[in-house]
Amino acid sequence: MIERPLDLDAVKAFVCVAELGSFTRAAEAMQTTQAAVSLKLKRLEDRLGLRLVERTPRYVELSAKGVTFLEHARELLDAHERALGAFAGVRQRLSIGVSDHVAGPELPALIARMNAQDPELSIDVRIASSGDLLQSFDRRELDAAIVRLHAGRDDGEMLAEESLGWFASPHWQHRANEPLPIATLAEPCGVRVMAGRLLDAASVPWREVFVGGGVPTVAAAVMAGLGVAALAPRMLPFGALDVGEKLGLPEIPRLPVLLHTRVREGRAHDALVTLSAAFRSVVRG
């Protein structure tokens, strides 16, 4: 029978490690050190008499007991936040803009991670082009913006660098002596401009065959066999092929993902730190 109560900070450390798959990312999310997270987890394991995490040099994996305990740990933290929220008064609001080229299929899980970190925080998320989001941020319509590197701006915090490629459907074939058919986002889109300049500099004839209102629509056009698009691999369904080398297309440089924020403290800041750590986990070259 367990007599002493569990340490909530240790439980939170375990949940962070489990959800982010990394002691380093968990430390970033909790604004502490990797050693401190490891110590909290070890104390929790000692308290429970269970091994929750299998540690290897390359990855972190939950044990069978850890998988079982994770659901209970989340319930415990949720109950704790609800108890605090009952006396917290007015909910604090955080408005975030996320670039269409950054907000991939992982976005629902990232938002859920932020909500789990602070269920009483009201989160407002807007998806748009990096240029539009930076304008909204400068007008103070957004508290924070996560965007691609934008020309003339160097005031953001780098979260990660991501590789892009020239992707097409596995069934698509380029017709000889015809301009390269390109699927892009509508203006303004920095990746669209960059892709066009790279092709022009490499003397590759091209033409736009599809302009989408969002990355999912561009990815759909690619998989439908309309042409080629410059996108990050994680934005495309399984099976899309990078045809850049085969067609002799110019290499796309790694593009930074930046966080612009004026939130420096409080619960909203803690939520942004959690979101930043989660983005670093999914955005990789």
Rank of each mutant, 00 (worst) to 15 (best):
I123Q: 10
V90W: 03
R55D: 06
A201Y: 10
L180D: 04
M223N: 06
L236H: 04
A186H: 14
L133D: 04
R192Q: 10
D143C: 01
L198V: 01
F238P: 05
V191Q: 07
V125R: 00
R207E: 14
G213H: 14
A83E: 15
T217P: 01
Y59R: 14
E106K: 08
S22A: 12
G156Q: 11
L41G: 03
Q92E: 15
F210N: 09
R43W: 04
D143P: 00
S169T: 02
P105C: 02
P5K: 02
M1V: 08
F279A: 04
A183N: 03
Q34P: 12
L226D: 07
L231P: 00
K12A: 15
Q173Y: 04
V204N: 09
G248K: 07
A18L: 02
T261K: 11
A186K: 15
F238L: 12
T217S: 13
L20R: 08
G156R: 13
L198W: 05
A278R: 09
S38A: 11
P181Q: 10
V263N: 01
L41N: 12
P181S: 09
A144H: 00
E245K: 13
G248M: 08
S163M: 06
F137E: 01
A83Y: 10
D143L: 00
K246V: 13
S163C: 06
A277G: 05
T24Q: 14
G66W: 00
L134F: 07
F14G: 02
D124H: 13
S122H: 14
L121Y: 04
T217I: 08
R91C: 02
L249G: 03
E208A: 11
S281G: 15
A160D: 08
P5W: 10
E141C: 06
F69E: 10
E45G: 12
L52H: 03
D78V: 11
A83V: 09
A26G: 04
L159E: 01
L84A: 12
P205T: 00
A116S: 08
G248T: 00
R175F: 01
E45V: 02
L258E: 11
W166Y: 05
P179I: 00
A271V: 07
D270T: 06
L133N: 05
L255T: 00
L226N: 08
L6M: 04
G196T: 09
